[in-house]
């Protein structure tokens, strides 16, 4: 039995510690804030971070995409991708807003039918219903028809945008009721984001849903062999992602007090970027809502930092692009280094 004892010793010697993936993103966030803080004092003569107004604008600015990113994060963890979120925001905004108009506006879309000044549950329910339909189509195509998620959601991205444009032939819809406006007033978008983020952080960490999402993203064949109903689970993942896109649309529409067919354009890419910067692996199986939230804050800091320094918005995208690539390169380098330690 000595050989066995030796084998056991070898196993204990392999004990190793690992740094959570969110740590890199958090350090990146801190570094960015320090850079803007230093630039703020030297160029503008004031603090970047310690300004209540700037902070609240910064957070509300990214909260809408943040809600979308929570849904996208769980799709990516399950091993897929969702490109349709931005377009679902567009379609949901338009249709929901048309049922949220006030009778103050004489050219409200459904004024002849008398569908104005409706209680806010109606536009909310209709908006989420639109998102639900999109999610069901995504879910069926990915889970049961077995289309690659990239293709299925690309199709939805194009189709939902088409619906958004078709609905009013591209004209914006405005003048919501005060009740509807309240969804987006003040820090409401931030509270909604925090609620959604904490809820899904808990769900992914502590529930069967979360465990199976990670398992499928990690090894779909193993998950299937273990008796997990992979099809039903993936269906649910895409439906939830679409519903969160719908929620983001409601918040955005209420905050803007208008709906435009091009709402949400490229938001799906921002959401994916937030997740990736936060350490969510595009290969599936790894990442967390916490990481995505940090990624979201990085986007917020860049956004308001550039405005704060009155730097041209064009530079913003250049820096964002570099950060996305840099974050993934850093993550891969870190993983390789870890693999060599084993």
């Amino acid at each position: 039995m000595t050989d066995v004892a030796a084998a056991n010793d070898m196993f204990t010697a392999r004990k190793r510690k690992s740094l959570p993936a969110e740590m890199n993103a958090f350090l990146g966030l801190v570094v960015l804030i320090l850079i803007f803080e230093a630039l703020g004092w030297s160029l503008m003569g004031q603090s970047f971070l310690f300004n209540k107004l700037r902070l609240s604008i910064m957070i509300t600015q990214v909260a809408v995409v943040g809600i979308l990113a929570v849904g996208v994060t769980q799709v990516i963890i399950s091993g897929g991708i969702d490109l349709s979120g931005g377009s679902i925001i567009g379609a949901t905004s338009m249709i929901a807003m048309s049922f949220a108009q006030s009778s103050v506006f004489p050219r409200a879309i459904y004024i002849e039918q008398g569908w104005v000044d409706l209680p806010i549950v109606i536009p909310i329910a209709i908006g989420l219903g639109v998102a639900l339909i999109c999610g069901i189509i995504n879910g069926v195509l990915v889970a049961y028809v077995k289309l690659p998620s990239f293709i299925a959601t690309l199709g939805m991205m194009v189709t939902a945008r088409g619906v958004a444009l078709w609905y009013t032939e591209g004209k914006p819809i405005s003048f919501p009721t005060d009740g509807f406006k309240a969804i987006g007033e003040g820090l409401m978008p931030v509270w909604i984001f925090i609620t959604v983020a904490v809820l899904f952080w808990l769900i992914l960490r502590y529930t069967l849903y979360g465990k199976h999402t990670y398992a499928i993203g990690s090894n779909e064949a193993a998950a299937r062999m273990s008796g997990i109903n992979v099809e039903r689970h993936l269906f649910l993942v895409y439906v939830i992602a679409a519903l969160l896109a719908g929620l983001a649309a409601l918040v955005l529409t209420a905050r803007s007090q208008t709906a435009q067919a091009m709402f949400g354009t490229t938001n799906e890419l921002d959401a994916i970027a937030m997740a990736v910067i936060g350490g969510v692996s595009l290969a599936g199986g790894r990442g967390s809502i916490l990481g995505t939230a940090i990624g979201m804050l990085i986007f917020g800091v860049i956004f308001s930092g550039f405005i704060f320094l009155s730097v041209d918005a064009y530079y913003q995208n250049m820096v964002k692009g570099a950060i996305i690539v840099g974050a993934v390169a850093l993550d891969q380098w870190r993983q390789k280094r870890q693999a060599m330690e084993i």
Binding site: Y214, S226, G285
Partner: peptide, 9 residues
């Protein structure tokens, strides 16, 4: 033979 484990769990 192919283990059937989820690597990230």
């Amino acid at each position: 033979q192919n283990l059937a484990l989820a690597d990230d769990l």
